[in-house]
């Protein structure tokens, strides 16, 4: 039975609230949430989320780790920072959403895989070239997740090409080795989740 269970990625000495708080760089102020709901009311994609940020924070406090990491909420966050600037307790909501995304990827528990794929492909290009690569990212994303829209997108791609607004090959920075060394060291310094 134990052989089939997923690898234990939690830090057993911490509850989920403390884990999220410590994993978020800077001061997240997560424990300051007063459950007022201003965040959800300010969110432009709130109606498409499984849980509003307020609900999610209540679930974090209730130690509902799996439900939180399976929620589509962090993936539907568009990083507009409306919630963060309106929060009366100055909770760094957007930063916490990033933390939850990275924890869901690490635990392989995300439901909306197209968003996680986009982020991971993006990271791949940054780590191998030092630059983002729009053409490669968009093509991979459409082939995997929206193949039916490929025809419409192909015409847009041709438009981008004829307007010289897209490159067909990625650009590599000169000192890629330096960047890779920095990122490798930074990964070692990441707080465990």
């Amino acid at each position: 039975m134990l052989t089939n269970s997923p690898p234990v990625l939690t830090n057993p000495s911490l509850n989920f609230l403390e884990t999220v708080k410590q994993a978020t760089p800077g001061d997240s102020r997560l424990t300051m949430c007063i459950q007022c709901g201003t965040c959800g009311g300010s969110c432009p994609s709130g109606q498409d989320m499984d849980h509003t940020p307020r609900q999610l924070f209540a679930m974090i406090r209730a130690d509902m780790r799996d439900e939180v990491l399976r929620s589509n909420t962090p993936w539907y966050c568009v990083s507009c920072y409306f919630c963060m600037v309106r929060c009366p307790q100055e909770v760094h909501i957007t930063d916490i959403m990033y933390t939850l995304k990275s924890m869901a990827i690490a635990a392989d528990m995300y439901e909306t895989n197209s968003a996680a794929d986009l982020s991971q492909n993006f990271v791949g290009y940054v780590e191998n070239y030092g630059r983002s690569f729009e053409f490669g990212l968009a093509t991979r994303q459409y082939l995997r997740h929206q193949p039916l829209s490929l025809m419409r997108r192909a015409s847009m791609g041709l438009g981008m090409l004829s307007k010289k607004r897209i490159d067909l090959t990625p650009t590599r920075i000169d000192n890629l080795g330096q960047l890779q060394a920095i990122l490798a060291r930074a990964k070692e310094l990441e707080a465990p989740t």
Binding site: T24, S102, I105, V126, I182, A186
Partner: peptide
Amino acid sequence: DWNCCGATEYAAVHRIPSYAL
């Protein structure tokens, strides 16, 4: 020799490295 800032994607995968980037 600037590198990509990570946009809104890098921090969704790695936290501390996104700041190092």
